[in-house]
Design a protein around this nucleic acid. Structure first.
Lengths: 213, 213, 213, 213
DNA sequence: TATGAATGAGTGTTCATTCAT
DNA sequence: GATGAATGAACACTCATTCAT
């Protein structure tokens, strides 16, 4: 709280290797919590299984750390971007979503939604954390963007509680596709097309003057 | 004999499989494949663990059966509905999505997308099956609806490969929300609001003449 | 005891189907007691698994019955044959062993030694029964033969406690070979050669005047 | 530390496999493959059940290892003994068989024939391995001994394909007796008598000049 | 008498967790 | 700190046994 750089969850070691979390994220995203073997995580990280326990007291703690550490960098940039932006709503929405996709969707962080979708029921506290730190914050961010557009007369009036989640849904789905091998498979090179199309559709549903594209 | 509580052995073989699949779907959706214990599934279905093996040769086969049996009846209705419909595109879209939500989204079948999202990586063949029998078929259905609207001059020209998936994404997300306890939690009574809002947004993004609503 | 035709173990049903015992013997011989599934035995006999329990109260009882019923016809003939025989020892030995092989070695009863070898440790009472009814009786039979030969001056003096078992060993081994697929495999058509050779060897070791052959 | 009772974790990895194989051999010989519980094997070896899986990937692999590791040291000595021997055939045969009995028959390795007899049908590949590495090699060894005796004019001409197996049969049977509790039971102290008697009988059947004994 | 669906104890196997080194 | 052998609870799966029909 008073320490601005220390997240609320306790670090056991300051030098807690990021490699472990990286390796763990890969496996958790690919196979889910239960099906992930710590043996495999350890092997991927190039350490022994016992070493994992030097940094995380259990598989569950490792999982929580993976999620929490992954979440940190997610939303900060976008929030400040919106606050400072001076252009019109269409450009802002395009910029935010494109940046989001480049920074998150294209990185391994895109696995988080899949992870939380699959495991929320098994990790209620973690789900709550995710809900607050990502979902709520993300929706507030979009609501801010919409409110700004309405104030500028670029975006029509609408229910600002419902709109963000519906508006963002396709973006989330695109991240799920990336990690649902075979289901809703989209060739990586086509994802860009989906992104543009999605932005276009979203703008058409909120802008007063439809974009030309 | 006259006892109102049927003794265990009196259950009919014909009724069993569906009871088992129902119980299994509940557990698989709630906990995922690996974390689901067959003991629990059996208990939920009111049978012993051994009985499961009379009907499904392994946990994996049970899982596959759950997915396959759940989706078969899903899409037929919608397909014939579209074929026969004579009204305009807005009404058709509203009808299809509302019906879909009532039949699928509001039932336990809504758990399937979560299941496949979480487990696709662990069951490649099943993922392929799901992709072909559900995803592809569902998208074709939406594409047909759009094509029909374009022909009738009600819907604008658009990329019919990209549009269905983007258009449908919020509907899928709504189903995921239902089963991601805590994450994106939506109070059940609010889901109706989301549904209407979603339909409105979707229509705005495709109709030539915006709906009034 | 007082009933000359009723063996000492109790029959549960007079009409106890021989088919069940036959099928069971096949499986027990082929796979051993523990690895034999009653499902398979039932299927081989063309009945349901439940039917087995109409005739045998447990797998163990079935096994015992198989062994006991199989043993019955084993030794009676040979005993009376020896008693009545009037020729010389060489001819008698040849006759007894050849007959034995034709009646037992060539039939499915040849599986008994394998069965008892494998399961004696798990069925002590059955082992005792087999020991008394087959082994001891068989050795006494051979001892009688030898004693007769010694009295007739055809066979050398020897330890009549040790000799029978050693003398008969190769015959037992030949029965084991038949049922030890792959181990000590002997082509069926060669077994006859082994039989003749064995008889010749045995006679050489006991006759005072070596046979010519 | 200075505690005379070694704590569990201090056992060396190198020593483990052989301890496990020893314990497993005991149980497999006593009860057969199917009836042997890995729990019991582990307990006999003083480890937990899971430890077995550090060394053998399955019960079947453990069984195979037991057989394979047991036979390696079996035949080498006898082969070189025969090659170098300079005395007459009677002495050689006595020496080989006596040594064999001391080294194999009197050790727990004597359980192998029983094991293979009982389980050959369930492990075809293992049976083949045993046949080639033990049975064939053993018979070749005896054939060599006989050929040598024939060349020296001490042993009569005979079919060298049939003779070894028949000649050796009683020795094998003696090993089976040891492990067929109750069937053909021979008091341990009498086995020596059987051995001498067997050697005498065997020699009488092959030597040109009968031994005096 | 015969059936076969149902049971549940038993066992092979996995894997998170521990701990002496 | 790091290791990896060892543990044992947990769980998938089997199969002898039961019993209403």
């Amino acid at each position: 709280m008073s320490c601005p750089f220390k997240p609320r969850w306790e670090r056991r070691k300051d030098a807690r290797p990021q490699e472990l979390l990286d390796a763990a994220l890969d496996h958790f995203v690919a196979r889910g919590f239960a099906a992930t073997r710590l043996d495999d995580v350890a092997k991927s990280a190039g350490v022994s299984k016992g070493t994992l326990y030097l940094y995380f007291s259990s598989k569950e703690e490792l999982f929580k750390a993976v999620v929490r550490e992954s979440i940190v960098p997610l939303l900060g940039e976008a929030e400040s971007l919106i606050e400072q932006y001076e252009g019109n709503s269409e450009e802002l929405f395009r910029l935010v979503m494109t940046t989001w996709w480049e920074n998150v969707g294209a990185s391994k962080l895109s696995g988080l939604p899949k992870l939380m979708t699959a495991e929320a029921g098994n990790f209620p506290e973690l789900a709550k954390f995710y809900q607050e730190e990502v979902v709520d914050r993300g929706e507030k961010l979009v609501a801010t963007m919409l409110k700004r557009g309405i104030a500028r007369g670029e975006i029509r009036e609408m229910d600002l509680e419902l709109a963000p989640r519906i508006l963002v849904a396709p973006m989330i789905m695109m991240m799920l596709w990336k990690h649902s091998n075979g289901v809703c498979f989209v060739e990586p090179e086509k994802l860009g097309g989906y992104l543009d199309f999605y932005i276009d559709m979203a703008l058409r549903s909120v802008l007063i003057d439809k974009p030309i594209n």
